[in-house]
């Protein structure tokens, strides 16, 4: 009556990318590997016509439009692709949800360089004690700005991508600049 359906190439890639994202967000600061070295991989795994997306990177636009998502301003977007972040001002408008609706806090994807640059110390859920990591490519004051903007459980969740590697920094993570 029923044959087991075959996992297609797209489905396998989306499955692998999501596994990486879930793993990374569950273990802040530890890198995992996406199915491809691109933000498009993340779009294919997460975005469809239910979403409102802002992208600072015009190259992502065709993938976003194909997904059926609505292209929106930063403040209305549930997924925000900022590419390599140049200034802190673009963070102000990102949706952080509220204590009543923490689910409305956005998912934000940034391009960074891992294992070099500023040293930060992570603690909170997913980190056994503390974890020190290095991230380059974020403007000065980024982490302090993030801490000031958030009123937990309101906040947004970060994916920082370097090639295929991605780390997750959920809003629950406490970040200390060393």
């Amino acid at each position: 009556m029923l044959n087991t359906p075959v996992q297609g190439v797209d489905e396998a890639a989306a499955n692998k990318t999501f596994e990486a994202l879930l793993w990374a967000l569950s273990r802040p600061g530890l890198a995992s590997n996406l199915s491809a070295a691109s933000d498009e991989a993340i779009i294919d795994a997460l975005i469809d016509r239910e979403c409102r997306v802002y992208s600072a990177d015009p190259q992502l636009m065709s993938n976003i439009l194909c997904s059926g998502a609505t292209v929106s301003e930063v403040k209305d977007a549930d997924h925000v692709f900022l590419g390599a972040l140049r200034d802190l001002a673009s963070l102000d408008d990102i949706s952080k949800g509220s204590a009543l609706y923490p689910n409305e806090g956005a998912t934000v994807v940034l391009r960074v360089a891992l294992n070099k640059g500023r040293k930060i110390r992570l603690s909170g859920p997913g980190v056994k004690t503390v974890l020190d990591i290095q991230i380059a490519g974020l403007p000065d004051g980024f982490w302090q700005n993030r801490a000031e903007m958030f009123c937990y459980p309101a906040g947004f969740d970060l994916f920082l991508r370097d090639g295929r590697q991605v780390i997750g920094i959920p809003r629950s993570t406490i970040v200390e600049v060393l």
Binding site: L22, L25, D48, E50, G105, G126
Partner: peptide
């Protein structure tokens, strides 16, 4: 695929706010 993507998005949010 659409149902899966919604679950993926919501799983990420649930991990972000334990």
């Amino acid at each position: 695929p659409s149902a899966k993507r919604e679950l993926r998005r919501k799983m990420l949010k649930s991990v972000a706010v334990p």
